[in-house]
Design a protein around this nucleic acid. Structure first.
Lengths: 192, 192
DNA sequence: ATCGAAATAGACAGATTGTCTCGATAAGGT
DNA sequence: ACCTTATCGAGACAATCTGTCTATTTCGAT
């Protein structure tokens, strides 16, 4: 009292915050969202209850912080792939495949649906729009190369990709994931 | 006390149950899942708190009952469309379009993601499998007519459809929904 | 060495939970 | 019409959780 976990206050606060995020998610997956309390989170995180309230006001805020962390990690990774040298279509394929693998490893359902249930639609909308926006940028490049269907806007096609690839969460293998990416890509191409 | 809402006990219990389902969902959309309590539900439903516990043990159970009701309604409607006379491909199109419109009217996010957060994955998996199973049956028929791609199984393609069409929830118009259906269908066709 | 920051056990009042009782009322059956 | 069965719910109870606050201790930062 107080017992810092690292050498500096800044690092300590960072580690505590991350611990809270991970612990909360662990509890949610064990018990379900409605059965998780701030008291349990504090106890399992190894901090005092009053201390927990200094970091987050409620369970909902914790889950959103965790969601934000995830989305920014994914975006960073996908953006790197999208910025690699090469033709637009192959970069698009790489990004879609990476996103599909993220969905695959995340499992059937992930944090992206949080907003629906936690009264913060705008948070999830923003995540989908960020990922969709990244896809859209690539789709515009593919369109300029004449390799994209013209009857549907790149924006709508981006949304299609974001949703279609979530099917990867329920697939049994990475081969199946790559087949899903192929199916999705074929929906994007100019139709004869 | 007791004040029945209808002439028979059976009908009364049915109406009370439906009222609880709808009221709970209303509260969830207003306040978010974590802020809804049994006390609030009872009060807004116009029944006593002890009475509410006679119908449902907790908020989670109420939400699942509502989810089940929705899924069975959708399945009934989609199955009717799939059983209409006509070629397999046009029936598939009708079913996919109907499902997309359901997603569109449901909004960006619906009840199907409940399981992720409420510790009951198997419930949601079952819903997706039921809808996916219906799609799959039609896809098998389309395959027999030689109108389906052969490099991906009808099962995986069904899952692709279920997920891709959820993009309809974020689209601005029914025209956009129909374009989404077209994009999805083009992913299913044999590729040249 | 000094000061500001951080942690936390414990307390407090309020809210909710899950359960239960018992009296009142109404449906159901004969 | 009468009796039985079913239902409701106000109120009570004990337990749990919440959000806030205080006083004390410890530790990083300078």
């Amino acid at each position: 009292m107080p017992k810092l976990w690292t050498d500096t206050i800044e690092a300590h606060r960072h580690v505590v915050r991350e611990t809270i995020l991970d612990t909360t998610w662990g509890l949610v997956t064990e018990r379900g969202l409605l059965a998780v309390t701030m008291s349990q989170i504090a106890e399992r995180s190894g901090i005092g209850r009053a201390t927990l309230y200094k970091y987050f006001p409620d369970v909902e805020s914790i889950l959103f912080a965790r969601h934000e962390r995830h989305v920014s990690e994914h975006l960073r990774h996908l953006a790197e792939l999208g910025n690699q040298p090469g033709e637009a279509e192959s970069r698009l394929r790489a990004v879609l495949a990476a996103y599909a693998l993220i969905c695959h490893h995340r499992g059937q359902h992930g944090t992206e649906e949080l907003g629906a249930l936690l009264h913060r639609h705008e948070i999830v909308d923003r995540a989908e729009q960020q990922i969709g926006g990244l896809f859209q940028g690539l789709l515009v490049e593919v369109a300029e190369a004449g390799r994209l269907r013209r009857d549907v806007s790149p924006e709508e096609l981006a949304s299609f990709c974001v949703h279609a690839l979530t099917a990867a969460g329920g697939l049994p293998s990475e081969d199946a994931v790559h087949r899903l990416v192929e199916v999705t890509l074929s929906g994007l191409r100019p139709q004869s």
